[in-house]
Design a protein around this nucleic acid. Structure first.
Length: 151
DNA sequence: GCCAACGTTGGC
DNA sequence: GCCAACGTTGGC
């Protein structure tokens, strides 16, 4: 099983939004590196839900991959901010996953806390200049994050 | 294929 | 709102 970190701006879509919806397609990823990571996600993978561009950025909980290799529907929608005129139904450019709400962290793991707890080579999100919205998390770091969130 | 200009992300 | 650190675009 793989672990991921998924970034979202909470004023657009937050983990409590996901909690209410139960599950959601992770749409709007328009970066090839991030998409390529999403394409390797497998059923049952666990993802850390990261709130970005907010007062206290950090991981607020967990979700789980329940469907893989979905064509992101927003790429076909001319009214969507994520519309991609170069994408066709036959050859979609943007694939993503569906995630289901799993848990809220008892204690959110803030970016500040992650910077203290992890070296840059241990966790991508604390690397300088990192802007990826989808990142892999290795098993050791994942276990530590889960422990920090549950404490 | 190079690279300048431009756009975006996201912390601060 | 600023700006660093990217990624993308398009002329050549």
């Amino acid at each position: 099983m793989n672990y991921w970190m998924l970034k979202s701006e909470p004023h657009v879509f937050s983990i409590t939004d996901l909690q209410h919806k139960k599950s959601a397609i992770w749409d709007g990823v328009r970066n090839y590196t991030a998409r390529n990571f999403l394409k390797t996600a497998a059923l049952g993978d666990l993802a850390f839900f990261y709130h970005s561009s907010t007062e206290i950025p950090g991981v607020y909980g967990l979700c789980k991959v329940t469907e893989t290799l979905l064509a992101d529907p927003t790429q076909f929608d001319p009214k969507s901010d994520y519309f991609d005129p170069k994408s066709t139904r036959d050859a979609p450019r943007w694939h993503t996953v569906r995630v289901a709400f799993d848990a809220l962290f008892k204690t959110p793991v803030t970016l500040d806390a992650m910077k203290v707890a992890f070296k840059p080579d241990e966790l991508m999100v604390v690397r300088k200049g990192n802007r990826l919205s989808v990142m892999p998390v290795d098993a050791a770091a994942a276990q530590r994050l889960i422990a920090m969130g549950a404490a």
